[in-house]
């Protein structure tokens, strides 16, 4: 534990930068891809299942999955939890817009972690263990439970929020948006992006009903 702390402290700058980068690439990029792919559900089970099969037929599938999705998620999430250590919330006392965003970013991160863990377990690892085929029916079946369905509504919305607001933070964190005007404009831009992505995500979700 102490060694981890020391390592974190000594490499603070690069670890933090990597943390913020990992949220954009590959995780953010994957999120966009994932939401769009899911939208094929709008064209019916056949089209959707074709896409899934196509994905499952990719070469180096495991390497891609682990290298670009699972490990970055774990890295991003676990470090995120470590960074929460120094968090002392005061958004009620100082209820400024940005402070709420700051708080929501952390709160959403924790919920999203649970959501993703559940989602990945259900559709990736549980199916691997039971040998159940991953297809439209499997998803539709699961979502037929309204509790699960609304959990997904919440999960997708918060994931997109975490991503869009994270992008805003990324731009500040990397020194891309410096002045208040630039930060305000980028805020509107990422708000728009977030709304589009939430629409795409929820629209696909409803296609499974």
């Amino acid at each position: 534990m102490r060694a981890v702390k020391k390592w974190l402290q000594e490499n603070n700058f690069f670890i933090r930068k990597l943390h913020s980068l990992s949220g954009v690439v590959p995780l953010g990029a994957f999120l966009i891809e994932h939401l769009i792919t899911n939208s094929f559900a709008k064209f019916g089970p056949e089209v959707y299942n074709q896409k899934i099969e196509w994905f499952q037929s990719l070469p180096y599938l495991y390497a891609l999955e682990y290298g670009f999705i699972f490990i970055p998620i774990l890295f991003h999430a676990l470090l995120g939890f470590v960074f929460l250590w120094a968090w002392s919330d005061n958004s009620a006392r100082y209820p400024y817009g940005r402070n709420w965003m700051y708080t929501l970013q952390r709160a959403s991160g924790m919920i999203v972690f649970v959501f993703i863990a559940y989602h990945v377990w259900e559709f990736r690892f549980e199916t691997q263990l039971t040998g159940a085929p991953v297809n439209f029916d499997l998803v539709a079946n699961s979502l037929s439970n309204p509790l699960i369905f609304y959990f997904y509504v919440l999960g997708i919305t918060l994931t997109v929020f975490h991503f869009a607001n994270g992008l805003w933070g990324f731009c500040v964190h990397w020194g891309i948006t410096v002045g208040p005007r630039a930060q305000k404009l980028s805020g509107f831009l990422f708000l728009a992006l977030g709304l589009v992505l939430v629409y795409i995500g929820l629209d696909a979700l409803w296609a499974f009903r």
């Binding site: 603070n12 700058f13 933090r16 930068k17 120094a86 968090w87 005061n90 100082y94 400024y96 940005r98 402070n99 965003m101 700051y102 708080t103 933070g169 500040v172 964190h173 990397w174 020194g175 891309i176 948006t177 410096v178 002045g179 208040p180 930060q183």
Partner: peptide, 30 residues
């Protein structure tokens, strides 16, 4: 890197110092 970007600093600064601009500028420099 410990800055969490809540931007409360710039809201409460009595001297209206553009603290978040300073931090973002240093983000760029670092």
């Amino acid at each position: 890197e410990d800055c969490g970007n809540s931007q409360n600093c710039v809201e409460v600064c009595p001297k209206e110092i553009p603290l978040t601009t300073s931090i973002a500028e240093l983000n760029r420099q670092t």
